[in-house]
Simulated assay, not measured.
Amino acid sequence: MTAVTEAVDRATAVNAALTAVLDPELDRPITELGFVRSVSVGTDDSVEVRLRLPTYFCAPNFAWLMVEDARRELARLPWAGECTVVLEDHFASEEINRGVDCGSSFADAFPGLADPDRMQELRAVFLRKGHLAAQSRLGRRLLERGWTHRQLAEAALGDLPERLTVTLRRRRALLGLPADASAPLFTDDQGRAVSALGLERHLLKGRTAGVGIDSNTEYCEGLLATRYGTAAGHGKEEAS
Protein backbone atom coordinates (compact mmCIF):
# COMPACT_ATOMS: atom_id res chain seq x y z
CA MET A 1 0.00 0.00 0.00
CA THR A 2 1.39 3.41 -0.99
CA ALA A 3 1.54 6.31 1.44
CA VAL A 4 -1.09 8.16 -0.62
CA THR A 5 -3.46 5.20 -0.61
CA GLU A 6 -3.01 4.72 3.12
CA ALA A 7 -3.75 8.40 3.77
CA VAL A 8 -6.92 8.21 1.67
CA ASP A 9 -8.04 5.06 3.50
CA ARG A 10 -7.46 6.69 6.87
CA ALA A 11 -9.33 9.83 5.87
CA THR A 12 -12.19 7.57 4.79
CA ALA A 13 -12.05 5.86 8.19
CA VAL A 14 -12.23 9.26 9.91
CA ASN A 15 -15.33 10.20 7.92
CA ALA A 16 -16.88 6.84 8.74
CA ALA A 17 -16.24 7.41 12.43
CA LEU A 18 -17.88 10.82 12.23
CA THR A 19 -21.13 9.30 10.95
CA ALA A 20 -21.77 8.33 14.59
CA VAL A 21 -21.87 12.02 15.58
CA LEU A 22 -25.39 13.45 15.49
CA ASP A 23 -26.66 16.97 15.51
CA PRO A 24 -28.77 16.60 18.68
CA GLU A 25 -31.67 18.69 17.45
CA LEU A 26 -31.74 17.41 13.86
CA ASP A 27 -31.06 13.73 14.68
CA ARG A 28 -28.80 13.39 11.63
CA PRO A 29 -25.08 12.65 11.32
CA ILE A 30 -22.94 15.74 10.92
CA THR A 31 -21.39 14.14 7.83
CA GLU A 32 -24.78 14.11 6.09
CA LEU A 33 -25.62 17.64 7.13
CA GLY A 34 -22.47 19.12 5.63
CA PHE A 35 -21.06 20.20 9.00
CA VAL A 36 -17.67 18.55 8.38
CA ARG A 37 -15.65 21.11 6.43
CA SER A 38 -12.40 19.16 6.22
CA VAL A 39 -10.57 16.07 7.42
CA SER A 40 -6.80 15.74 7.41
CA VAL A 41 -4.50 12.93 8.49
CA GLY A 42 -0.82 13.68 9.13
CA THR A 43 2.17 11.49 8.40
CA ASP A 44 2.37 10.90 12.17
CA ASP A 45 -1.25 9.66 12.14
CA SER A 46 -2.48 12.83 13.80
CA VAL A 47 -6.05 13.71 12.83
CA GLU A 48 -7.62 17.13 12.46
CA VAL A 49 -11.30 17.66 11.73
CA ARG A 50 -12.81 21.09 11.11
CA LEU A 51 -16.52 21.63 11.66
CA ARG A 52 -18.84 24.43 10.57
CA LEU A 53 -22.44 25.18 11.48
CA PRO A 54 -25.30 26.95 9.67
CA THR A 55 -25.02 30.21 11.62
CA TYR A 56 -22.61 32.15 13.78
CA PHE A 57 -25.12 31.96 16.63
CA CYS A 58 -26.03 28.26 16.65
CA ALA A 59 -26.74 27.12 20.22
CA PRO A 60 -23.39 26.64 21.99
CA ASN A 61 -24.62 23.63 23.97
CA PHE A 62 -25.50 21.75 20.78
CA ALA A 63 -22.21 22.82 19.20
CA TRP A 64 -20.34 21.58 22.28
CA LEU A 65 -22.01 18.16 22.09
CA MET A 66 -21.04 17.75 18.44
CA VAL A 67 -17.42 18.77 18.98
CA GLU A 68 -17.17 16.58 22.08
CA ASP A 69 -18.75 13.59 20.33
CA ALA A 70 -16.51 14.03 17.28
CA ARG A 71 -13.41 14.05 19.44
CA ARG A 72 -14.56 10.91 21.26
CA GLU A 73 -15.23 9.03 18.01
CA LEU A 74 -11.80 9.97 16.62
CA ALA A 75 -10.12 8.76 19.81
CA ARG A 76 -11.61 5.31 19.17
CA LEU A 77 -9.66 4.88 15.93
CA PRO A 78 -6.94 2.40 16.94
CA TRP A 79 -4.27 3.92 14.70
CA ALA A 80 -4.96 7.60 15.39
CA GLY A 81 -2.38 9.76 17.13
CA GLU A 82 -3.24 13.22 18.42
CA CYS A 83 -6.84 14.11 17.53
CA THR A 84 -8.03 17.68 17.15
CA VAL A 85 -11.54 18.93 16.42
CA VAL A 86 -11.88 22.59 15.52
CA LEU A 87 -15.21 24.41 15.35
CA GLU A 88 -14.94 27.35 12.96
CA ASP A 89 -16.90 30.60 12.51
CA HIS A 90 -18.94 30.38 15.72
CA PHE A 91 -19.25 33.06 18.38
CA ALA A 92 -18.16 30.57 21.07
CA SER A 93 -15.55 28.69 19.01
CA GLU A 94 -12.68 29.64 21.29
CA GLU A 95 -14.39 28.50 24.48
CA ILE A 96 -15.74 25.30 22.92
CA ASN A 97 -12.50 24.28 21.19
CA ARG A 98 -10.38 24.98 24.25
CA GLY A 99 -12.83 23.36 26.67
CA VAL A 100 -13.26 20.13 24.71
CA ASP A 101 -9.53 19.93 24.00
CA CYS A 102 -8.77 20.22 27.73
CA GLY A 103 -11.44 17.70 28.73
CA SER A 104 -13.48 20.34 30.57
CA SER A 105 -17.25 20.23 30.97
CA PHE A 106 -19.62 22.65 29.30
CA ALA A 107 -20.38 24.14 32.72
CA ASP A 108 -16.66 24.72 33.33
CA ALA A 109 -16.25 26.42 29.97
CA PHE A 110 -19.31 28.63 30.49
CA PRO A 111 -19.34 29.30 34.25
CA GLY A 112 -22.64 30.54 35.60
CA LEU A 113 -24.44 29.88 32.33
CA ALA A 114 -24.93 26.12 32.42
CA ASP A 115 -26.25 23.49 34.79
CA PRO A 116 -23.63 20.69 34.99
CA ASP A 117 -26.38 18.04 35.09
CA ARG A 118 -28.32 19.31 32.10
CA MET A 119 -26.06 18.39 29.17
CA GLN A 120 -26.55 14.64 29.28
CA GLU A 121 -30.27 15.06 29.89
CA LEU A 122 -30.43 17.42 26.92
CA ARG A 123 -28.73 14.79 24.78
CA ALA A 124 -31.18 12.14 25.98
CA VAL A 125 -34.22 14.33 25.29
CA PHE A 126 -33.30 14.69 21.63
CA LEU A 127 -32.27 11.05 21.26
CA ARG A 128 -35.68 10.02 22.60
CA LYS A 129 -37.36 12.35 20.13
CA GLY A 130 -35.33 10.89 17.26
CA HIS A 131 -36.09 7.36 18.41
CA LEU A 132 -39.80 8.15 18.49
CA ALA A 133 -39.70 9.70 15.01
CA ALA A 134 -37.84 6.67 13.62
CA GLN A 135 -40.49 4.35 15.05
CA SER A 136 -43.21 6.39 13.39
CA ARG A 137 -41.51 6.25 9.99
CA LEU A 138 -41.08 2.51 10.24
CA GLY A 139 -44.64 2.02 11.51
CA ARG A 140 -46.13 3.94 8.59
CA ARG A 141 -44.06 1.91 6.15
CA LEU A 142 -45.21 -1.40 7.63
CA LEU A 143 -48.86 -0.32 7.82
CA GLU A 144 -48.69 0.57 4.12
CA ARG A 145 -47.44 -2.97 3.49
CA GLY A 146 -50.52 -4.42 5.17
CA TRP A 147 -49.38 -4.97 8.76
CA THR A 148 -51.98 -4.52 11.48
CA HIS A 149 -51.49 -2.60 14.71
CA ARG A 150 -51.56 -5.87 16.62
CA GLN A 151 -48.82 -7.34 14.44
CA LEU A 152 -46.71 -4.24 14.97
CA ALA A 153 -47.22 -4.41 18.73
CA GLU A 154 -46.20 -8.06 18.86
CA ALA A 155 -43.16 -7.73 16.58
CA ALA A 156 -39.54 -7.77 17.74
CA LEU A 157 -36.51 -6.08 16.18
CA GLY A 158 -35.31 -9.44 14.89
CA ASP A 159 -38.49 -9.93 12.86
CA LEU A 160 -37.31 -7.39 10.30
CA PRO A 161 -34.16 -7.09 8.17
CA GLU A 162 -31.44 -5.11 9.93
CA ARG A 163 -31.47 -2.43 7.21
CA LEU A 164 -34.98 -1.46 8.32
CA THR A 165 -34.12 -1.19 12.01
CA VAL A 166 -30.62 0.30 11.96
CA THR A 167 -31.77 3.71 13.20
CA LEU A 168 -33.86 2.20 15.99
CA ARG A 169 -30.97 0.04 17.17
CA ARG A 170 -28.49 2.92 17.09
CA ARG A 171 -30.75 5.26 19.05
CA ARG A 172 -31.56 2.56 21.61
CA ALA A 173 -27.89 1.76 22.10
CA LEU A 174 -27.22 5.45 22.80
CA LEU A 175 -30.17 5.59 25.20
CA GLY A 176 -29.20 2.39 26.99
CA LEU A 177 -32.38 0.58 25.89
CA PRO A 178 -32.54 -3.08 24.77
CA ALA A 179 -31.56 -3.34 21.11
CA ASP A 180 -31.16 -7.10 20.63
CA ALA A 181 -33.24 -9.20 18.26
CA SER A 182 -35.81 -10.05 20.95
CA ALA A 183 -36.46 -6.42 21.94
CA PRO A 184 -39.92 -5.05 21.04
CA LEU A 185 -40.10 -3.26 17.73
CA PHE A 186 -42.08 -0.37 19.22
CA THR A 187 -41.27 0.87 22.71
CA ASP A 188 -41.75 3.79 25.04
CA ASP A 189 -38.87 5.82 26.49
CA GLN A 190 -38.13 3.09 29.04
CA GLY A 191 -37.94 0.30 26.46
CA ARG A 192 -41.34 -1.16 27.32
CA ALA A 193 -43.42 -2.57 24.48
CA VAL A 194 -46.26 -0.37 23.22
CA SER A 195 -49.62 -2.15 23.27
CA ALA A 196 -51.78 -2.54 20.18
CA LEU A 197 -54.33 -0.16 21.71
CA GLY A 198 -51.72 2.51 22.29
CA LEU A 199 -49.82 2.11 19.05
CA GLU A 200 -51.82 4.50 16.89
CA ARG A 201 -51.28 7.34 19.37
CA HIS A 202 -47.61 6.37 19.73
CA LEU A 203 -47.08 6.60 15.97
CA LEU A 204 -48.92 9.91 15.81
CA LYS A 205 -46.64 11.38 18.48
CA GLY A 206 -43.67 10.14 16.51
CA ARG A 207 -44.97 11.69 13.32
CA THR A 208 -45.31 15.04 15.08
CA ALA A 209 -41.73 14.75 16.36
CA GLY A 210 -40.53 13.83 12.88
CA VAL A 211 -42.22 16.82 11.26
CA GLY A 212 -40.41 19.13 13.68
CA ILE A 213 -37.07 17.45 13.05
CA ASP A 214 -37.50 17.55 9.27
CA SER A 215 -38.56 21.20 9.29
CA ASN A 216 -35.56 22.22 11.38
CA THR A 217 -33.26 20.17 9.16
CA GLU A 218 -34.51 21.82 5.98
CA TYR A 219 -34.13 25.24 7.57
CA CYS A 220 -30.57 24.55 8.76
CA GLU A 221 -29.52 23.09 5.43
CA GLY A 222 -30.75 26.24 3.72
CA LEU A 223 -28.85 28.45 6.16
CA LEU A 224 -25.67 26.42 5.68
CA ALA A 225 -25.94 26.62 1.91
CA THR A 226 -26.55 30.36 2.08
CA ARG A 227 -23.65 30.94 4.46
CA TYR A 228 -21.04 28.87 2.64
CA GLY A 229 -22.41 28.71 -0.89
CA THR A 230 -22.52 24.91 -0.93
CA ALA A 231 -25.34 22.43 -0.51
CA ALA A 232 -25.38 20.36 2.64
CA GLY A 233 -25.44 16.59 2.42
CA HIS A 234 -28.78 15.05 1.56
CA GLY A 235 -28.07 11.41 2.35
CA LYS A 236 -30.27 9.61 4.83
CA GLU A 237 -29.44 7.05 7.42
CA GLU A 238 -30.60 3.63 6.36
CA ALA A 239 -34.11 3.66 6.48
CA SER A 240 -36.49 3.56 9.29
Score class of each variant (00 low, 15 high):
128 R>N: 11
214 D>R: 13
119 M>D: 07
35 F>E: 10
64 W>F: 06
118 R>Q: 05
71 R>S: 10
229 G>C: 03
185 L>V: 02
172 R>P: 03
210 G>W: 04
63 A>W: 03
26 L>E: 02
236 K>R: 14
184 P>V: 00
74 L>A: 07
47 V>M: 01
116 P>A: 02
161 P>N: 05
43 T>Q: 12
168 L>T: 12
186 F>N: 08
183 A>P: 02
105 S>I: 06
98 R>P: 01
47 V>G: 00
96 I>M: 12
212 G>A: 14
71 R>C: 09
220 C>G: 03
200 E>I: 06
180 D>M: 00
206 G>Q: 01
192 R>S: 08
26 L>M: 12
31 T>H: 02
21 V>H: 01
160 L>D: 00
54 P>D: 04
237 E>H: 02
100 V>L: 07
125 V>I: 13
83 C>D: 10
65 L>G: 05
225 A>E: 12
223 L>T: 10
218 E>F: 11
102 C>A: 14
43 T>R: 00
12 T>W: 04
71 R>K: 09
219 Y>W: 10
19 T>K: 02
170 R>E: 01
175 L>T: 07
202 H>P: 03
26 L>S: 02
147 W>D: 08
19 T>H: 06
162 E>V: 00
155 A>F: 00
79 W>N: 08
216 N>I: 09
38 S>I: 03
5 T>A: 15
188 D>V: 10
235 G>W: 07
197 L>R: 08
49 V>I: 10
50 R>E: 10
77 L>M: 04
180 D>H: 01
236 K>N: 04
15 N>D: 11
82 E>Y: 07
135 Q>F: 05
105 S>V: 08
49 V>D: 03
140 R>H: 13
140 R>M: 08
210 G>E: 09
89 D>A: 09
191 G>D: 02
141 R>T: 14
15 N>S: 02
222 G>V: 12
8 V>M: 08
19 T>P: 00
64 W>N: 03
30 I>L: 06
128 R>H: 12
191 G>L: 12
99 G>S: 15
115 D>V: 05
149 H>F: 15
133 A>I: 03
173 A>E: 09
219 Y>H: 14
218 E>S: 13
214 D>L: 10
72 R>T: 12
28 R>S: 15
130 G>A: 05
215 S>G: 13
208 T>H: 12
23 D>C: 01
2 T>I: 09
32 E>H: 11
83 C>G: 06
201 R>N: 14
72 R>G: 01
52 R>C: 05
116 P>N: 10
90 H>M: 02
23 D>W: 11
8 V>I: 09
40 S>C: 04
55 T>Q: 08
8 V>T: 11
117 D>T: 14
221 E>R: 14
72 R>C: 12
109 A>P: 01
142 L>C: 05
217 T>N: 11
160 L>M: 00
107 A>P: 04
18 L>F: 08
96 I>F: 06
59 A>N: 09
207 R>Y: 09
22 L>E: 04
95 E>D: 14
114 A>L: 06
34 G>L: 09
215 S>N: 14
197 L>I: 09
176 G>V: 12
117 D>R: 06
32 E>N: 04
156 A>I: 00
164 L>F: 06
240 S>T: 07
19 T>I: 05
